[in-house]
């Protein structure tokens, strides 16, 4: 039980956290950046481009979600490796909750991406059932990412014993993440993509993404990533508190 005890020691970070109006500085930064991205995303100037038209505003929402997801999944990978080295339950909780947040962002990214693709890449009527999915490299990569991490959640739920579950889930998560990276690197070589910058399509960076858009796009990425970390932080603290309550019941 020595390993478990590390979770129940008083959380060292909360006392030391410097608060500004009740929140840490990076949380305020996250709120500010996401709000800025949303407001500027809807009212800011965008270049008029064929096919894309006003849907280009989705760039501020869709792409930062993927960024946030990849970052938060990387956090999960790091904490999985840490767990295998330390056996500290808190590392396992962080790895698990990062995946949960990553899955949420992944689902949102899929939804916004599918919505966007419907209006730009497919030529089906607006209310028809088909045309929501185009066979595209990045889309498939995203779908596989979500599938892999749903499998991770199922794997976790199929075991009761905490230590064993944590260890096996960590092993799977490391294995899956490495192969996912391989997949994302290999896939664009196999087929053409509709996405900008691949398969002969021009990249946004070249001329589409003018300086006005960049002023919104980069803050949006940082803001959404911070928001993902914030959500993960809350979930982790909730889990730790729940475990404490559970332990106190049996004292």
């Amino acid at each position: 039980m020595a390993k478990v005890s590390s979770v129940y020691s008083p959380p060292n970070s909360i006392g030391k956290r410097k608060l500004i109006l009740g929140l840490e500085w990076w949380k305020w930064l996250s709120i500010g950046l996401v709000l800025y991205a949303i407001i500027m995303g809807f009212v800011g100037p965008v270049p008029a481009l064929p096919i894309l038209h006003e849907t280009i505003r989705n760039l501020y929402f869709h792409v930062p979600m993927w960024w946030g997801m990849m970052v938060i999944l990387l956090v999960s990978l790091i904490y999985s490796i840490k767990y295998l080295n330390s056996g500290n339950t808190k590392h396992d909780i962080i790895a698990c909750e990062s995946v949960n947040v990553g899955l949420l962002l992944g689902m949102l990214g899929l939804a916004t991406g599918s919505w966007w693709a419907k209006f730009t890449w497919s030529f089906t009527p607006l209310f028809s059932l088909d045309g929501w999915w185009v066979n595209d490299v990045r889309l498939n990569g995203a779908a596989i990412t979500v599938l892999i991490y749903f499998a991770y959640v199922v794997l976790r739920n199929s075991m009761d014993e905490e230590q064993k579950r944590a260890k096996i889930a960590a092993v799977y998560s490391i294995f899956a993440y490495v192969l996912l990276i391989v997949f994302l690197m290999v896939l664009p070589r196999l087929t053409d993509s509709l996405h900008p910058g691949t398969g002969g399509n021009p990249a946004f960076g070249k001329y589409d993404l003018d300086s006005n858009m960049r002023m919104v796009f980069y803050p949006a990425i940082i803001g959404w990533t911070l928001l993902a970390v914030w959500m993960m932080d809350i979930l982790v603290r909730l889990r730790v508190i729940r475990q404490k309550i559970l332990i106190n019941q049996f004292k």
Binding site: I144, L155, S158, L187
Partner: peptide, 30 residues
């Protein structure tokens, strides 16, 4: 490796497929 993982869990045969299919995709597509 997936068999080693799924042998530690309860519903092992189904889990094996769920765990391995998405991971096998880079290999399969290449």
């Amino acid at each position: 490796l997936m068999s080693a993982i799924s042998s530690k869990t309860r519903g092992n045969q189904t889990l094996m497929a769920i765990l391995s299919f998405p991971i096998q995709l880079p290999l399969l597509l290449t």
